[in-house]
């Protein structure tokens, strides 16, 4: 049984149908990539899975349970973490408070403290800036904070929206390193990326979205060597 099963999902805003019948599935501990151009519906797809944007048609099942139409704060409790596009850390709260808010739906105080320590050993720079305001961090540090914050809800599935956006190459490789490490922790990942090459390297399978529909679906290696993908998203000559 797949961990996440999305079937014929439709979602959008007002008259706009951003996602028009997308189906995908994620197996436990697996990383899948969703690639596509701007406006292809990637972000909306993630928002619909985590319940922030209402689903118009289709179903979402998580661990065998239907979560279609469930309010987003309950979906987080079931084990779907979401690191939204653009990092979205809380700028006027300290790094520690940001992390603590990541564990908002948990009540096991002692374990939260240990988990925060673990995040700090994963991202030492966060440990050094615990009492600094989130908004004063650099872009890369903010992305680390966003990842750490998302991990603190102890998700079984993480939805990551453009984690490499606007970051220096050296930071990007650090971020991808951490994402690759999620598999070892038993966290499955849906990775939405503009950086298709890096995403397909990490992922086992991938979906290509075009104007709200799945245009291609294959193993990550197959996708990475597919001429259509190479032309459109990998920028190979």
């Amino acid at each position: 049984m797949p961990l996440l099963e999305v079937c014929d999902l439709e979602a959008g805003y007002g008259p706009i149908r951003a996602v028009q019948g997308v189906s995908l599935d994620v197996i436990e501990g697996e990383i899948v990539a969703i690639i596509g151009a701007n406006g292809a519906g990637k972000t909306t797809l993630l928002l619909a899975i985590s319940g922030v944007v209402a689903t118009r048609k289709g179903t979402v099942r998580f661990m065998g349970q239907s979560i279609t139409g469930m309010p987003s704060h309950e979906i987080v409790r079931l084990g779907i973490g979401h690191a939204p596009e653009g990092r979205r850390i809380f700028p006027r709260l300290s790094v520690r408070e940001n992390l603590e808010l990541g564990a908002f739906c948990r009540t096991d105080r002692g374990a939260i403290v240990r988990d925060i320590e673990e995040i700090c050993s994963l991202f030492p720079v966060l440990g050094q800036r615990m009492s600094q305001m989130g908004g004063t961090l650099s872009g890369g540090e903010q992305q680390m904070l966003a990842l750490g914050r998302a991990m603190l809800s102890r998700p079984k599935l993480l939805l990551l929206d453009e984690p490499s956006l606007g970051l220096a190459p050296i930071v990007v490789s650090k971020i991808f390193e951490v994402i690759a490490g999620f598999t070892a922790r038993g966290i499955a990942v849906v990775l939405v990326e503009q950086n298709a090459r890096a995403a397909l390297k990490l992922a086992s399978r991938g979906w290509v979205l075009e104007t709200g529909r799945v245009s291609l679906f294959a193993n990550a290696e197959t996708l990475a060597s597919d001429p259509r993908v190479r032309d459109a998203y990998l920028g190979d000559a």
């Binding site: 987003s72 987080v76 979205r88 809380f90 709260l93 408070e97 908002f104 739906c105 914050r149 998302a150």
Partner: peptide
Amino acid sequence: MAVREDELAATAMGIS
């Protein structure tokens, strides 16, 4: 405060 700072992110943390 989380809602004040960023409502979407707060929702993603499991805050209603």
